[in-house]
Design a protein around this nucleic acid. Structure first.
Length: 660
DNA sequence: AATCGCTGTCATCTG
DNA sequence: GCCAGATGACAGCGA
């Protein structure tokens, strides 16, 4: 319980330091008329101002040898009342230095005392306090041990108190002091002091002064509630509560000085230095302080996150880490909309990712097939890719200056598109494309595509999430147009056939765009480009198939989800059934046991009962009935005919005898 | 070679 | 009647 002492004494010292930091001169002399020495009062142990060998509590408190009404406790609470007065005095507070010395006197434990973080002001104050406290401390060996690093050199200085260590104060002065204490009343006394000291305690906690010892808990405090309340106010509050109470310190200080603005600011800065500043290595990470330190940095992070979330669209609130590629693609394709949503660093991150993906460069040189494949992968992504990259590349690659495109257009259009004839028979014909037509595809089909991409015939963004896999084949096509990887080429052929035919039609849109574009735009496309009926039917077919593909994907996904949900429901119901069966079994057991107990008790009771003739009652003829008022009565069992025939009128007699 | 899962496509229905 | 979406059925493909 050394920490208890330090808890209070350090709290008082911290309070004084806090006052000094806000410009309040600590001078208790004026308050005590310079004649009172709180160090020791000889008027008996009942006095609240008796000098308390506070360190003596160290060994006694744990053993509960200190009575709650002991003078030491009175002394402590008297100290607190004095602080209450100090707080209630108002603006021009001048703390008598004796109080400071008195406070220093109460710092008995020295081995663990360390200077608070803001050592400059604290050391000055404490030094000043100790300088006022005279050579009395010279006799107090414990005090010398307390703070010899900071205060011992000043303890030798002369002071108003005799070096005997016992300052004699007349009883009448004590009474006068008590009267002054009474004058200030009780309003708002307890809580503000406790709050202040709690805040100071928080400071102490932050400084780790209390971290090494036993936890300050009053859970084992067997003392009466009145004292317990006081103690628990200081002892039972966790650190985080102190942290929460820290903001209350300025509130309490608002009563002190007219210069409260500075006081508040300084207090805030002090708090920041002690708490918030702890983030910046002001507080050693130990014990409960670690939690405080770890909690503080969340502030800026939260602010950052909130800023991002506030500025970004709901879909992009997951943060940069979780920023999907789709968002990146959005950033590239629809700069106007997404730029407004993702500003600042988000944009930087987006463009960084774009650069990493190489989309900006690759899109410029991507040929039509690959772009078509890309766009055929995820219409949801490409849904917004309506403007620049895709179409321009598409058109450029589709131009006559593109060898591959021209080759494709010439060969494919002649070899398969016209052969396919109407769009209605398209699918079956395509599936049964002749090998020559396939070979034509091979001339420009990607050979190095990632298998995942080619396996994914869907338009999901998952395939698009690997842009490298979709951009690299572009080079492979140009460099190795004739590849022997038939399997992948087949997949490429499967995936890109609509794209190929769209390109063969010289439609300035990719298949994915055709699928994803609105109906009006699609109709404009059909009407505005002078397409032949065959081409129109083909485009409609492409759109229909693409839509249906997506629909099939969604449908299957829903089906799987439904199956999964039903399986979970089945498992849940099975578990519920098992639970209910167990409960029923348990209930049946309990009921049987209760019945057995009831029978046993009935037999026991009947064995103790006698009828009028002294014969024991038998459960076969009598029963116990519990009435509403809790009264238990013995009732005769009326047996209809058998009983009357066999037993005759005897039961009636017994029954009459029985009803006591 | 048979099987299974995935995917695309078609036909059909519904709103 | 057209369109979009949903869904069952079928076929192809790869593991």
């Amino acid at each position: 319980m050394q920490n208890v002492k330090k808890y209070f004494t350090e709290g008082l010292i911290q309070f004084t330091i806090l006052l000094s930091l806000i410009g309040v001169r600590v001078d208790v002399d004026s308050y005590l008329n310079g004649s009172y020495s709180p160090l020791e009062i000889s008027d008996g142990p009942s006095s609240a101002y008796i000098q308390t060998p506070f360190h003596s509590l160290r060994d006694n408190w744990d053993g509960y040898s200190v009575h709650p009404k002991c003078p030491e406790l009175d002394y402590f609470f008297a100290c607190r009342r004095l602080l209450d007065e100090v707080r209630a005095l108002g603006s021009p507070i001048r703390f008598p230095t004796q109080l400071s010395a008195w406070l220093v006197h109460q710092v008995p434990d020295s081995s663990e005392f360390r200077e608070p973080p803001n050592s400059t002001s604290n050391s000055n104050v404490s030094a000043g306090l100790l300088s006022e406290s005279t050579g009395e401390e010279a006799n107090d060996t414990e005090l010398l041990a307390v703070d010899e690093s900071h205060t011992a050199p000043q303890l030798s200085g002369p002071g108003p108190y005799p070096s005997t260590g016992a300052c004699e104060i007349p009883n009448e002065e004590v009474e006068e002091l008590k009267g002054r204490i009474q004058e200030y009343g009780d309003e708002g006394r307890e809580e503000p002091v406790s709050l202040t000291q709690l805040a100071l305690s928080s400071t102490l906690e932050h400084e780790g002064l209390l971290g090494s010892g036993a936890p300050l808990s009053s859970s084992e405090d067997p003392h009466p509630p009145d004292i317990d309340q006081h103690w628990s106010q200081f002892l039972s509050l966790p650190i985080y509560e102190f942290d929460d109470l820290d903001p209350l310190v300025p509130q309490q200080l608002s009563d002190l000085d007219a210069d409260i603005s500075s006081a508040i600011s300084q207090d805030v800065s002090l708090r920041d230095a002690m708490v918030t500043g702890s983030v910046y290595d002001m507080i050693p990470p130990r014990g409960g302080v670690r939690t405080l330190v770890a909690r503080q940095p969340r502030g800026p992070l939260f602010r950052l996150e909130s800023t991002n979330s506030s500025n970004s669209s709901p879909g992009t609130t997951t943060g940069l880490v979780a920023l999907p590629n789709a968002v990146v693609v959005n950033g590239t394709r629809n700069g106007s909309s997404s730029h407004g949503a993702l500003e600042g660093c988000l944009d930087e991150a987006v463009f960084d990712q774009i650069n990493l993906l190489g989309l900006d460069g690759c899109l410029e040189t991507m040929d039509a097939q690959l772009l078509g494949i890309l766009q055929g992968i995820d219409p949801r992504v490409l849904e917004d890719l309506d403007s620049d990259s895709g179409l321009s590349l598409e058109s450029s690659s589709r131009g006559p200056d593109s060898p591959s495109a021209s080759e494709v257009s010439s060969s494919s259009s002649s070899s398969f598109f016209e052969d396919e004839g109407g769009a209605t028979g398209y699918s079956s014909e395509v599936d049964s494309l002749p090998s020559k037509s396939i070979a034509n595809y091979h001339t420009w089909s990607p050979v190095d595509f990632s298998e995942s991409v080619w396996h994914d015939h869907s338009y999901s963004s998952a395939a698009f999430s690997e842009p490298s896999a979709t951009t690299f084949p572009h080079k492979a096509i140009k460099e190795e147009p004739f590849s022997d990887e038939d399997g992948e080429d087949d997949e490429a052929r499967e995936l890109s056939r609509d794209e190929l035919r769209t390109r063969a039609l010289h439609v300035p849109f990719s298949a994915a765009e055709i699928v994803s574009m609105p109906v009006e735009e699609f109709l404009e496309l059909l009407e505005g480009h002078g397409l032949s009926p065959t081409q129109v039917a083909f485009l409609r077919d492409i759109r229909r198939r693409g839509k249906n593909k997506l629909a099939a994907q969604n449908c299957r996904k829903r089906k799987l989800d439904a199956i999964t949900g039903l399986q979970e429901e089945v498992e849940r119901l099975q578990a519920q059934r098992s639970r209910l069966l167990r409960e029923r079994q348990h209930t049946a057991k309990a009921l049987g046991a209760a019945g057995q107990r009831m029978e046993h008790l009935s037999r026991d009771i009947f064995s103790r009962l006698r009828d009028g003739s002294g014969r024991p009652l038998t459960p076969e003829r009598y029963t116990l009935q519990c009435e509403a008022n809790g009264r238990v009565v013995v009732q005769h069992i009326r047996r209809p005919s058998v009983a009357t025939t066999t037993a005759g009128g005897k039961p009636d007699k017994r029954k009459k005898e029985k009803k006591p």
